[in-house]
Nucleic acid binder design. Structure first.
Lengths: 345, 345
DNA sequence: TTGTATGCGTTATCAA
DNA sequence: TTGATAACGCATACAA
């Protein structure tokens, strides 16, 4: 043991060296005011000298918390998820909580398994990010595993609607956002607006409904070739459109990458953006600034969703168990117009 | 307590209900083969009925590990960091380890503080991602805090070189990669290649040195206006070039976003890519596919760096303390040519 | 194969 | 202001 590391020094060692009881050491470490200045200094000196650090597991065992929140996302490599995790991590840090991160993928059995892993580590609460955890937005069997988890700790879902006791959700108003932008495209003179998405999740379905209602309000037919399910991948979307000829003069996409795929297609067949076709993306990611022209995109208020989630999480942990904390919060979206549309006011 | 949640059931409860000792319950839970099938079934039945889960803190206290690795990045909102975290999380999960994630920012005092937070949670090891943690790549005072942490647990640094006992590093061969691509640009007939970076980190300095050596080998002068320090932001780079007129026919950037900023500038002043100017990026991120034409970029072998890191981490935790595990691994980079260069073979 | 007893390192209660 | 001691819940060496 000459390398200096792995020197397990505990509260008894400190007590012995300082010639006090472990209770006094504990008081010093935790900043109790029931310690005389003299003994405090004495104990602090020893602690400093031997480099004592309290054992977090023992502390956790006694207090029944290690101030850790479990975060689950399908993949943190996705830009949207990454930003969500970043926001949440920063906010939780402010309150002295840390993040146990878990990437579950999209397969239901994996989600369940990973959720169990997180729970087994005795986290204080769970935050699930992404509409993939919400099934189709109801309280059906597909989200039973979330309600199961909520029997143990409070569960917060971002961007998905799940009903259940001890389950709190934060969503954005996707439907209105898509309806608004679709309506504005039509009013600006576009005759054939198409809708592209990569998912049938709760969130994607809300967007689709917004699109369909806007068409209905405008008295436009909802033909089959208005709706397209594609992969969330620039090249895949371009290839899809090249292989499946659809004529359109505006495209509403539920992901920025999909929108850029549309732009790539337009470029390859000689259509000008926005003169010949308008394109709108979703999430207002950094990618929206990478293409040319820059992509108009819907900002879904991610930062606000994260802030609200963490605030309510803290309220719940602070013991406001029950009705005082909002079960569901809806954040409005904002359309950020750039060069791929010309909607005017 | 009628809501079913927060029902603390421990090993003693199970033992009592199953009429066995806690040792037997423990054996069942941990899959020991020293249990008769009959008692196993009996105990499992009770566990199932009352929904018993072992307390992770108590387990951690006894075994002195909770199988958790601390991950530190400056910001997980950055695409490169996010992908690194994703890779690592997936790999660690295979070995039954979880990630405590911490975003430190770039300020030295914050890095130290956050590192302390991670250590205070009694993680089994630390992984620091990004050359920002490496200072200037030496063993100077600026990285003392890392060696300090390494006195407590093994520390793994990705993309940065730090010397120290119990410190393991994984880097990519940035210098060769930049030197190679610069050389090829010159050979393809470019007269004035410029270099753009956003940092003076260990990694950025290696890239700069590669650029300078390539110029030297080609017998080209290294005038001051060859090297440019800019912000890692598309618009900022475009604005910078518009305000600081430099003539160039090729640009080597240390981030994809910087390269795209150069493309935006070229577009705004009517320069064609790649006919008038060649542009190369770094990290081969998804953004490289978003611009038009698609961006040639250097793939820094992130996936391989992560794999190597986790493998060696496991080796160290498995008790191969010492010399058997490689202290430093260098991963080669690969140039991915797309539409912004025309280097040929 | 099963049970008993102890240690792991805290915090908190209660006396002094 | 300080100290002794009991939880906290588990794993495990040792005994039976």
């Amino acid at each position: 043991m000459e390398d200096g590391r792995n020197t397990p020094v505990n509260i008894y060692d400190i007590a012995e060296l300082a010639k006090v009881s472990i209770a006094t050491v504990s008081r010093v470490v935790n900043g109790s005011d029931k310690v005389s200045p003299a003994t405090r200094r004495k104990v602090e000196k020893i602690i400093e000298e031997v480099g004592y650090t309290p054992n977090a597991f023992a502390k956790g065992l006694g207090l029944n918390t290690m101030h850790t929140i479990g975060i689950m996302v399908p993949s943190v490599a996705d830009a949207f998820m990454a930003e969500a995790v970043y926001n949440i991590e920063q906010e939780l840090g402010q309150y002295g909580y840390d993040c146990l991160l878990n990437c579950s993928g999209f397969r239901p059995e994996d989600k369940k398994k990973k959720l169990e892993v997180l729970l087994s580590k005795h986290v204080d609460a769970l935050i699930l990010i992404g509409s993939t955890y919400a099934g189709h937005g109801n309280d059906g069997a597909e989200t039973d595993y979330i309600r199961g988890a909520a029997k143990r700790v409070p569960v917060f879902v971002i961007n998905g609607n799940v009903k259940g006791d001890n389950v709190f959700v934060t969503v954005c108003d996707d439907m209105s956002a898509v309806a608004d932008v679709t309506e504005r495209l039509v009013r600006s003179g576009r005759k054939k607006v198409i809708f592209l998405t990569d998912s049938r999740s709760y969130s994607a379905n809300k967007k689709r409904r917004g699109f369909e209602e806007a068409l209905a309000r405008a008295g436009l037919p909802l033909s089959e070739d208005r709706i397209h399910y594609v992969k969330n991948d620039i090249r895949a979307v371009r290839d899809y459109l090249e292989k499946n000829p659809v004529t359109f003069d505006a495209a509403v996409a539920t992901e920025d990458a999909i929108a850029i795929g549309v732009m790539k297609y337009a470029h390859s067949v000689g259509l000008r953006v926005p003169e010949d076709v308008s394109v709108t993306g979703y999430n207002n990611s950094r990618m929206a600034l990478a293409c040319e022209p820059e992509l108009s995109s819907i900002n879904n208020g991610l930062a606000k969703m994260c802030t609200s989630t963490v605030q309510r999480l803290m309220a719940v942990l602070d013991g406001e168990d029950g009705q005082t904390v909002e079960r569901k919060v809806v954040i409005p979206c904002a359309f950020v117009e750039r060069g791929t549309t010309a909607l005017g006011k």
